[in-house]
Design a protein around this nucleic acid. Sequence first.
RNA 1: GCCUCGAUGGCGGAAUUGGUAGACGCGCUGGAUUCAAAAUCCAGUUUUCGCAAGGAAGUGUGGGUUCGAUUCCCACUCGAGGUACCA
Length: 1148
Amino acid sequence: MEYNFRKIEADWQKYWAENQTFKSENNSTKPKYYVLDMFPYPSGAGLHVGHPLGYIASDIYARYKRHKGFNVLHPQGYDSFGLPAEQYAIQTGQHPAITTEENIKTYRKQLDQIGFSFDWSREVRTSDPNYYKWTQWIFIQLFNSWYHKTTDKAEDISTLIAIFSSEGNSKVKAACDDNIEAFSADEWKNFSEEKQQKILLQYRLTFLSETEVNWCPGLGTVLANDEIVNGVSERGGHQVIRKKMMQWSMRITAYAQRLLDGMAKIDWPQPLKDIQTYWIGRSEGAMVSFKVLSPAPTVAGKLSQGKGVRDSGYLTGNQDIAHLLLEKAKEMRANPTPAESFLWEQLKSKKLDIKFRQQHLIDDFIVDFVCLTKLLIIEVDGKIHESQIEKDLERTKILENKGYKVIRFTNEEVIGNIDGVVSKIIVELEKRPAPTTAGKLSEGKRASENNEVLPLGKDLGWDIPVFTTRPDTIFGVSFMTLAPEHDLVPMITTPEQKVVVEAYIKSTAKRSELERMADVKTISGVFTGAYALHPFSGKKIPIWIGDYVLAGYGTGAVMAVPCGDQRDYDFAKHFNLEIPNIFEGVDISEGAYTDKENSVIANSDFLNGLPYKKALKRIIDETEQLGFGYGKVNFRLRDAVFSRQRYWGEPFPVYYKNGLPQMIDAKYLPIVLPEVEKYLPTEDGKPPLGNATVWAWDTKKSAVVSNQLIDHKMVFPLELNTMPGWAGSSSYFNRYMDPHNTEEFVSREAVEYWQDVDLYIGGSEHATGHLLYSRFWQKFLFDKGIVPVDEYAKKLINQGMITGTSAFVYRWEFGKGNGSDMAKKTIFVSKPIMERIIAERSTIKHSNKRLIKEQVDLLGACEVKDSSANEWSNFTPIHADVSLVNAADELDIEAFKNWRPENKDAEFILEEGKYIVGREVEKMSKSKYNVVNPDQICEEYGADSLRMFEMFLGPLEQSKPWKTSGISGVLSFLKKLWKLYIVDNKFSVSEENPSKEEFKILHKTIKKVEEDIDNFSFNTSVSTFMIAVNELTALKCNKRAILEPMAILMEPYAPHIAEELWKNLGHATSVSSVDFPIFEPKYLVESSKEYPVSFNGKMRFKIELPLDLSVKEIEDAVMAHEKTQEQLQGRVPNKVIIVPGKIINIVG
RNA sequence: GCCUCGAUGGCGGAAUUGGUAGACGCGCUGGAUUCAAAAUCCAGUUUUCGCAAGGAAGUGUGGGUUCGAUUCCCACUCGAGGUACCA
């Protein structure tokens, strides 16, 4: 009696289908367990062996849970809207529904062949109107909702209207568009209906807005960020450009924080959580506003001419009275007070290693001493000044506003305690920002570029808000950079800079995203000529534009802190801008210091000496108090564009009245996709639905009617966009709970019973797409009370990819170009020979005499001209179909010749009559001829073999190469299992009591398999089964008490053979719901242990000892052993380590 | 650049809390059966020295902790995936 897997598998697949064995009920006294696979897109190519990997794993788990007494929900369906069917329709005119239907049939056949325990009665298809009715319904719910930040959940739009009517919109905290005008309750009530609707649209969770989108001309549609790879479309690799379009969007940003928080309670792979965390991109920091100052065109003009008083380098101040003050300063320098000259002696010497100036003109003041590089002013107050305290204070304030620090000493201090005074000055100098590129630039140029001491410009009334994660470094700001696209750029640019700024904007606009990404190294930017006012130091800081600042993130402007941000640093270096150091004890000569956790702030006024965290809190408090800004959390996550200009997707339940979107009442759903003649966009650029002739909404009849009836009174045009691919997959797992409900998306009872998915298996490529959007929808549905939990999948596993093992033949290219006969032949060289030729290329010279012997015969028939060694060793690897190669990498030459006509007359250089191919692991793909089809495998080895082998390949989550040769081991294992139940070619088991040894084999298998399934370590349980069967075979075990439980253990992995064995054991019903065998530890209790005995950690021999010995008895037994004495050779061990039941280690 | 994961025979991989490294399978070698092949069965298969008994080395590299490290710690190399002027 042979193991006839073809018949067995066909019989049981039929049985399961006829008996609806795996149909699950919504009311059951059993506990529920929901095992979900990511439903497939039914592509025309069908399944390859990589696709079912996750399905097999989840099927094993589902079957195991049934044995464990759970009511298991294990559904399957199709994500059947999508681009390939549409593109096929464009090419052939075949309706995508037909293509999809055909592909689904193929998929279903292939899936059934593998013996999955899906409950097909719950199948869903996203392209089925009965299904997408509910996708449309959820869309309407989103439209009718807004996000109330105070209650931190979505609420019905009516609660927002109530707030507007009672208090206007100034107090309400909502997730909404930027730039919403403020209005009072009265104003709201007086707004027209239209205006009210426009305002509400800015608050709804799905909303229309003009957004800059990724427009793909090649596909005629917009793409989401996750549909673009390396700047081109994921499908087709078409160019993508930025374009402004009116689009539906989903306000996913409202849920950003909750999407982050929710990850704490779900057991998903950490890398996947990391990807989502990064995608959401939460960063804490502050918004700080910088005021724009009027430019100082006269100064700028003079500067650029390099002339005038400023060129003297250190002479600074108001030019109009400068000549008068200069005279005065000269006079004062000539007549110092005693204290002044005493201090000057100290300051002018090189002791301080920094240059001071005496009686120097700054602005309209003459100061006693100044260090221009450190902006430190030292005043020595004599009696004359006593009466002027108030004036001095004012003077200090003005100077400090210009970035100077003023310290004062009395005459008595200077004369009485010169050392104390000098050390105070040193301390102050150290606290001041470091001189910038001082060494390289002439001091004069540096001072004038910094412009700290230029007259302050007028406040122009413009603010530039910036977002920063490091407000603590604000004193390190030495310039600002705006994105070239920033709105303020044209306003603030000075006439002198206008030309270069405009040229720069033009040049950056031309660069595509792709270029900008590829070219991050090039630093570019231009100065606008404008200055901003530093809110704390009062310094003037230049405003630049640069393309390293992105318009789309934050406010499109940054406060540049070159000492703390590498990009700012590079920019500053490149343009010779100041790089003040505001970190204590840190060298920034080579690069920015970005380690915020370990930074201590210096040269920053009230932040001096504070570590990062304290400085952060202090500066935010200060900023908020002074009204310059506020603490803010920023997210990288953008609202999700929800419109696609495609045909084969869910139509929106939306019509337009006066240009404003109106929802169709849910009771008229579904709005069914209209028929069109052509699936391409219309000639005037409308989406494909623009081709539909019956696509208007009659508000009276509540029906879709002909476009000709549109009168904009009762009959209105319908939305022409369709929903994106992720719409249908964002809540399908809830619909499986109650798939035939025509009244509700999912009934309360069903969703209360099934709750959520317990185990979800699918690919990690959906991390920022489906897996994020579906979490968003779930949270929304939770807020609305439709589902009871706000995370829908407790555990997620990402199965790894099964890669292909491509086969290569090597075409010998020698003789090409020299016109020899050889060039006309196609010669394939076996891999080892090719390798030898390459290795020996140096010995192959200009004659064929020295060729290694394998080639001589073949070459003898050809005329060979001189050729260089490189030509001899030139080979082109060509993919050969993997089905033409056997397990030992030998090519079936005849089959290969017939495979493709161009190889028909090819010649082969063999070794021992064999052609050995090269192997390489690559992604499975048609073009690489390495695709293995599960149908062939099922036909040749059976579904059970396929299931077990896919699991046996390696850990589920790991990517691993497929090699068909390995499957023979699994098939022979199944045959061996089968044979255990056969005596004299007949099915027969013995009723005898099993031996202790047989029970031990069974129970250690139960234990291991249970543990393995709980850990999703399916590969190791396959080898456990093999071990068990090998051992039982060795014992010739044929006993029912062992073989019956074995059949149950096998069922999740190899259900067909298990059912057949179970039937032959005399059972009338399916094995699938039988209780799992119970592990009994008593069978594994051992009385003795074969201890490994190590000497200095190296195992030398083994010794069998009873397990109940004490440590002392074990030691005695070991030390008495002859081999121990042999190892020790008379030495006395330093130490004997004994771990009872584990190991003995003798040290010495 | 950053984040995550990984690296063990010819290959896929095993070793669950630190305790006999290489389970199980493929491939390979030899043998049995057969007219022959397929299928099946038996034995061997990390490298190296040795006829053997037995010895030495060995889990990407270099250190460390430990009686003992594939496992823990530090530094590095290589590979895979994700992501990127995100302020």
